[in-house]
Amino acid sequence: MNYYFDSLVRKLNGLGLELSGDTQFTEKPWVAITKFGVTGKFIFREDGIMLISIKGKLETAGWEHIEESKSLIITMHGARTLYQYRVLDEAVVVLRIDRSDKVSDYTVLVNDLEVPDLKVYDYIKKKLLEEKHIQLVELQDGREVHIKHRDKFHRLVGSEVTLRGNKLRDGVYVDKDRTTQFQVESGIIKNRYRKKDYENGVSVWQSGNYPRVGERVEGIEEGVVEAKDELDSYLFKASVSSGKVSGVKKRYSSGIVAIAVTVAVTIIVSAYFAISALL
């Protein structure tokens, strides 16, 4: 759990932004997550009493909200502790003991009515995409980038991409799952490639339905990549040189040709009878 919580705090702190949250703490069921896991449930009452449920057993504490400094004072067992808070969303609040950067001094509060499975980061990622069209993508090297889509269709090409608030450097990047690769220039995604697997362990990072000249190939340095239909007729043959596609020959499969011929014949026959009826 320590690794998970450390990763969660690091990612939440790395967001550098907040969603449509408010500072209304009272009368909500806040599940407290720390480095030890789920440690209990907090309910901040309007009268300054804080109810703490630990496996159903209730304790009481005191709390005070200082909104101007985004702080909470919690009094428990005679000790008073000052926490700084950050509202990421109406359902997620990050607390940390004042002036401390230790992960052990962080607590993540989650409203379990809004996030019943307590998968905090999945919830935040979904909310960012829905509200701000921002997609969080973890790269193969572990870094996380923010992709700001131009519209609700979330097309990668043309989107802005940043790392810790700064434009991502020019280059080609691969996501953690090695399914998507994108080329960045001046903080903008210029091209997007998806990994397509073919026979004999060969894969092509391609931008469309077919390989194109210049696209990167894995599995062979020299040779030919073929795609075939059920009738064993090839749809394309891509020549590979130095690990890249050097040429492509496309051909319709026999099945597609048969359908096209049938449709054409049907149209011609229908037109013939229609004209004959008019004469």
Results as ranks from 00 to 15, higher is better:
residue 188 I to K: 07
residue 107 T to W: 01
residue 244 K to E: 01
residue 247 G to Q: 04
residue 44 F to E: 03
residue 244 K to F: 01
residue 275 I to S: 13
residue 253 S to E: 06
residue 162 T to K: 05
residue 250 K to M: 13
residue 166 N to Y: 08
residue 187 G to H: 04
residue 166 N to H: 10
residue 263 V to R: 08
residue 212 R to S: 01
residue 141 D to L: 11
residue 142 G to K: 11
residue 85 Y to W: 06
residue 111 N to C: 15
residue 92 V to G: 00
residue 81 T to Q: 13
residue 91 A to C: 08
residue 203 S to A: 11
residue 177 D to Y: 13
residue 202 V to A: 02
residue 9 V to Y: 02
residue 28 K to C: 14
residue 265 V to G: 03
residue 183 Q to G: 05
residue 69 S to R: 07
residue 82 L to S: 10
residue 276 S to P: 11
residue 18 E to K: 11
residue 128 L to P: 09
residue 111 N to V: 14
residue 35 K to L: 12
residue 267 I to Y: 04
residue 243 G to L: 04
residue 57 K to G: 09
residue 159 S to Y: 01
residue 66 I to G: 07
residue 87 V to Y: 04
residue 110 V to L: 08
residue 186 S to M: 13
residue 130 E to P: 02
residue 22 D to A: 09
residue 55 K to S: 13
residue 37 G to H: 10
residue 248 V to S: 00
residue 198 Y to G: 01
residue 113 L to C: 09
residue 135 Q to I: 14
residue 271 A to K: 10
residue 107 T to Q: 11
residue 211 P to E: 00
residue 138 E to I: 04
residue 193 Y to R: 04
residue 89 D to E: 13
residue 13 N to H: 08
residue 80 R to W: 04
residue 238 A to G: 06
residue 79 A to L: 07
residue 21 G to T: 14
residue 57 K to L: 15
residue 198 Y to D: 02
residue 108 V to N: 04
residue 48 G to A: 15
residue 12 L to I: 09
residue 155 R to K: 13
residue 144 E to A: 05
residue 43 I to P: 02
residue 216 R to W: 00
residue 163 L to K: 06
residue 139 L to R: 04
residue 176 K to T: 15
residue 131 E to K: 08
residue 136 L to P: 03
residue 156 L to G: 03
residue 21 G to H: 03
residue 207 S to Q: 03
residue 245 V to E: 00
residue 73 I to T: 09
residue 257 V to P: 09
residue 130 E to W: 06
residue 209 N to K: 09
residue 158 G to E: 07
residue 172 V to I: 15
residue 177 D to L: 11
residue 186 S to H: 10
residue 67 E to C: 11
residue 101 D to K: 05
residue 273 F to S: 12
residue 110 V to R: 01
residue 81 T to L: 13
residue 232 D to H: 07
residue 139 L to D: 14
residue 75 T to F: 05
residue 73 I to L: 12
residue 71 S to Q: 14
residue 140 Q to H: 12
residue 204 V to Y: 00
residue 37 G to D: 07
residue 246 S to G: 08
residue 116 P to M: 09
residue 240 V to L: 02
residue 171 G to Y: 11
residue 268 I to A: 10
residue 219 G to V: 00
residue 73 I to A: 09
residue 188 I to H: 02
residue 144 E to H: 07
residue 83 Y to E: 12
residue 186 S to K: 13
residue 77 H to D: 15
residue 273 F to D: 13
residue 245 V to H: 01
residue 224 V to I: 15
residue 70 K to D: 06
residue 107 T to M: 06
residue 156 L to A: 07
residue 114 E to P: 07
residue 138 E to C: 06
residue 71 S to C: 09
residue 11 K to Q: 15
residue 78 G to V: 15
residue 112 D to M: 10
residue 41 K to N: 14
residue 2 N to F: 14
residue 181 Q to N: 05
residue 184 V to M: 10
residue 132 K to Y: 03
residue 13 N to G: 15
residue 125 K to L: 12
residue 56 G to C: 09
